[in-house]
């Protein structure tokens, strides 16, 4: 809470490792979050090798078994190993979370920056369109997407991505607007640089901080959205291993007789989103110059 130490200013001579170390030292919570995210990512990438069982294979000899040495987290009503399903579910969560966040964030970035840069009619139209999507209930969009295109992973991603776009473009536009009025953008124009160059070289780098913070939080939001959609029967579909799906149907039915079916996937979602958010918060503190001064 004390005043600013002098070494707080960014130091170009510092190596990546040093900055990382510094981040860890200054942001223990963020480091913990990062650790969770890394564990989740490693689990997802290496699911085939570390999962003890086939996540979709039914085993009618071992239905709703409590955690044991054979099945560390127990089995579900089809006798599928929960541990293996959670491990493979990390991959689904990563795919859904990252793809939605990246597509949603990137489209939002493009729309937001160009909307701010060109202004006028383009801005007006983009803003009205994003108003419509923002106001439109997510559930209707998701229901419609699933009913029209079917419920596969890619359609779930589509349903989750669409509402993220305007939210990102709003924020990006707001910060881009302040940059647009800066003298150096006018200078660049005066020099006769093309729109693309100005946007890419001057505007985009300057909105990167809020953008990265937002995209990080999108990953967590997308994982939660997938869980909610699955709960309503609109998400990823059986027998694909996905955390949200594991909480739907059976989990609730067996919540009191075989609680492990409901508890472990719920904990997995919580830890993942918690990790992403803790990391995102720390990232914000590190990137946002206004908040840096502590």
């Amino acid at each position: 809470m004390s005043a600013t130490p002098a070494d707080d200013a960014p130091d170009p001579r510092r190596t990546v490792w040093q900055s990382a170390l510094r981040f860890c030292r200054r942001e223990p919570l963020g480091t913990f979050g990062l650790l969770l995210v890394i564990i989740m990512a490693l689990t997802g990438f290496s699911a085939e090798w570390i999962a003890p069982y086939n996540p979709t294979a039914n085993d009618f000899a071992a239905m709703t078994e409590p955690p044991s040495l054979e099945h560390l987290l127990g089995t579900d009503q089809f006798g599928r190993d929960l541990m293996s399903r959670i491990i493979h579910g990390a991959r689904t969560a990563l795919i859904v979370g990252l793809t939605s966040a990246i597509f949603g964030g990137f489209s939002g970035l493009v729309l937001g920056v160009s909307s701010a840069y060109f202004g006028g009619k383009i801005d007006l139209i983009v803003q009205r369109l994003s108003d419509i999507v923002m106001a439109f209930p997510l559930i209707i969009l998701a229901l419609a997407v699933v009913a029209i295109f079917g419920p596969g992973v890619q359609n779930v991603i589509l349903a989750i991505t669409i509402p993220l776009i305007p939210r990102c473009s709003r924020v990006v536009r707001a910060s881009a607007l302040t940059i647009r009025s800066m003298p150096y953008v006018d200078a660049a124009r005066a020099c006769g640089f093309g729109h693309t160059r100005i946007i890419l070289r001057h505007m985009v780098p300057n909105v990167m901080a809020p953008f990265l913070i937002m995209v990080t939080s999108f990953v967590g939001q997308a994982i939660l959205a997938e869980a909610s959609l699955s709960y309503l029967g609109l998400g990823v579909q059986e027998p694909v291993p996905a955390w949200g799906l594991m909480l739907q149907g059976g989990a609730e039915e067996y919540a009191s007789t075989a609680p492990w079916i409901a508890i472990f996937p719920g904990v997995a979602i919580m830890l993942a989103v918690l990790g992403i958010n803790l990391f995102g918060d720390a990232l914000r503190d590190a990137l946002d110059p206004k908040l840096r001064e502590r």
Partner: peptide, 16 residues
Amino acid sequence: DEFRKIGVTVRQNIVP
């Protein structure tokens, strides 16, 4: 899962 056992991959298209 039964179809998987003869090498047929089936994806469920579960809709309202």
